[in-house]
């Protein structure tokens, strides 16, 4: 494969058209440092539980063009940060019958939420279930604030997920897959390797067996979710993992699972665990 490098001095408008028109390949040796400060691990040894299915794990950032990569290197260039700012206002907004905001219990998001994203999805002892960050946010809204739950893939929810996630940027993903989470993890693994739909494709067909290959104009990545929620140039908004899972399964000509379903919770735990060791990047920027 040949490598192409493009001018970084393009305007936003021109940039968008380049991203859609040319499947230029990524600069795989590039290093991701955000704001000249946060050094990201974008490539590292695969976790032991992958049993050699992958030798090294790579962030989706390493598969993108240099034009897309650079957007994530400075928060002023990262369109996802606009939504993080909006969620910060939300964090301090009182909602619901209890007259509380997120801040009423959790104070400063920067200190209280540091490290949280890195270990989610996570077993919740009281509820006796594996919970995603979205589920935990809605549990807080319903049971602590007396507020309405947010729709799983809504803009408000995804922004809140991004605000909490950004407090863990640069920390390695470290989700637990053993103990009480193990059966959920195994269910997720089963789904990962199941071939769905009339195209009869599993997650693994593209993201384990064919990463780095072109499928039409798309450069297939390992499908890592350490960068979620992700700002996609394609739809110009933040997307959470379940929204992406839904899109992927839909594209196998299958009946998808619903965001927030037991199946997608299990799949999120499993896919997150495949990225144990990569840095939390949210909000990442992809095409």
């Amino acid at each position: 494969m040949t490598k192409r490098s493009g001018s970084k001095a393009l305007t936003w408008m021109a940039l968008s058209s380049v991203v859609f028109a040319a499947p230029a390949l990524a600069d795989e040796s590039a290093k991701l440092v955000v704001n000249d400060e946060i050094e990201m691990i974008t490539e590292t040894d695969a976790p032991a539980h992958l049993d050699g299915a992958l030798g090294t794990i790579r962030s989706g950032w390493t598969f993108r063009t240099s034009e897309t990569q650079v957007l994530q290197m400075d928060d002023f260039d990262n369109p996802g940060m606009i939504f993080v700012d909006q969620a910060l206002d939300q964090w301090n907004t009182v909602e619901g019958s209890a007259g509380k905001s997120c801040a009423s219990c959790h104070d400063d998001v920067e200190s209280s939420m540091a490290g949280v994203r890195a270990v989610y999805p996570k077993w919740n002892e009281e509820a006796e279930e594996v919970r995603t960050l979205v589920m935990q946010i809605n549990d807080c809204r319903e049971n602590q604030m007396g507020a309405e739950p947010l729709k799983y893939t809504s803009g408000k929810m995804t922004a809140m997920e991004a605000l909490i996630s950004v407090q863990s940027r640069g920390m390695p993903v470290d989700v637990a897959i053993d103990g009480p989470a193990q059966s959920t993890w195994e269910r997720g693994k089963d789904i990962y390797y199941t071939r769905f739909g009339q195209l009869d494709l599993s997650c693994a067909n593209c993201h384990e067996d064919n990463y780095d290959n072109m499928i039409r104009a798309d450069h297939l990545s390992q499908g890592q979710i350490n960068g979620f929620p992700v700002y996609r140039l394609k739809n110009t908004k933040l997307n959470n993992a379940h929204a992406r899972f839904k899109g992927c399964i839909r594209d196998t000509r299958a009946e998808t699972f619903k965001p927030g379903s037991d199946e997608f919770v299990a799949l999120e735990l499993y896919v997150a665990s495949r990225g144990n060791g990569l840095s939390v990047e949210a909000p990442s920027v992809r095409n």
């Binding site: 199941t194 071939r195 769905f196 739909g197 009339q198 195209l199 009869d200 494709l201 067909n205 067996d209 064919n210 839904k246 399964i249 839909r250 594209d251 196998t252 000509r253 299958a254 009946e255 998808t256």
Partner: peptide
């Protein structure tokens, strides 16, 4: 093989209605 079967209509897991994400 990863290749989809282009003249086959059964034996699929959760077949969908084209690319709508809904049941076939």
């Amino acid at each position: 093989s990863m290749m989809p079967s282009f003249y086959k209509i059964d034996g699929f897991t959760r077949p969908g209605d084209a690319y709508t994400g809904k049941a076939a």
